[in-house]
């Protein structure tokens, strides 16, 4: 398919290279032969109507599907050139480098502090002073520090939904991943909390490569540098966000952008 060719002039090096990716739920094929390049230090948005496979696609990028029996993934996802689905690759170490933020905030039922230092701890960091540093740095980068610095030992479940989601982002940042996957991170939040998350994503791309699933085209337009459009398991088109939104190459993309799909 012509339209699935990678972006012609990548501004940066390719961080993630997806090649011929297929995902099956049992017999049902949810992603069909998707290929795309995710450029480093840029925000790439995945858009499309619900059920189009964008969430399925993003979960294939750090092998989250391994957790669900009955899901099979075929094809290649290369992180800096190395296939994460290769033989002898431990998915655990992949997820260390490719973090994920989920649709609904899912803080652990622990304190705010324990949530942030969870990742560094399980990866072997035990020095208390360093953990405290990591915690502060993570929360600062997630723009949450000022709101919670006096209540680090309170339960994370007492935070508002928007704060919880930023905590989940801080939690991911604390393990210093290279890529951050976000699966509709603002869909459960109110507009103010949403705009805070969007500002944050704009900040994050200086240090990280971000892939974000969103059901909101406005959101994709506001925050992303590249946009890819999914429909019924097919990756229809990928390009710079301005190209995809202003002069889509594919008729189906145009129909979706102009609101002719649900």
């Amino acid at each position: 398919m012509l339209s699935t060719e990678p972006v012609t002039t990548p501004v940066r090096a390719t961080k993630l290279e997806v090649k011929d990716l297929n995902v099956f739920y049992g017999e049902f094929q949810a992603i069909k032969d998707a290929s795309m390049d995710v450029p480093e230090n840029r925000v790439t948005a995945l858009i499309g109507p619900s059920g189009c496979g964008k969430s399925t696609f993003i979960r294939a990028l750090n092998r989250m599907h391994d957790l669900s029996p009955g899901v099979t993934v075929k094809g290649h996802v290369r992180l800096d050139g190395q296939d994460i689905y290769g033989k002898d690759v431990d998915p655990v170490t992949i997820r260390h480098r490719i973090g994920m933020v989920f649709q609904r905030p899912n803080p652990f039922p622990k304190t705010i502090y324990e949530n942030v230092v969870y990742g560094p701890k399980i990866h072997g960091l035990s020095d208390r002073r360093k953990l405290a540093e990591v915690c502060e740095r993570g929360l600062r980068r997630a723009a949450l520090w000022d709101e919670v610095k006096d209540r680090l030992n309170e339960s994370a479940l007492d935070l508002s939904g928007g704060q919880q989601q930023r905590l989940c982002i801080a939690r991911v940042l604390a393990v210093e991943p290279e890529v951050i996957l976000m699966d509709e991170p603002a869909s459960a939040l109110d507009p103010i909390a949403t705009s805070k998350i969007e500002d944050l994503i704009g900040e994050l791309k200086r240090d990280y490569t971000v892939v974000i699933v969103t059901h909101s085209m406005q959101q994709a337009a506001r925050i992303s540098d590249f946009t890819s459009f999914f429909l019924l398991g097919d990756l229809i088109e990928i390009g710079t966000t301005s190209e995809v939104f202003t002069k889509p190459k594919d008729k189906r993309t145009e129909d979706y952008i102009t609101g002719r799909y649900g």
Binding site: V92, F102, F108, Y118, G119, C168
Partner: peptide, 19 residues
């Protein structure tokens, strides 16, 4: 979702269970 969050941070299955 909590289990997924832990796995997505690079925890092993046992770490997720235990912690």
């Amino acid at each position: 979702t909590i289990k997924e969050a832990s796995m997505a941070l690079g925890a092993t299955r046992w770490q997720t269970i235990f912690h």
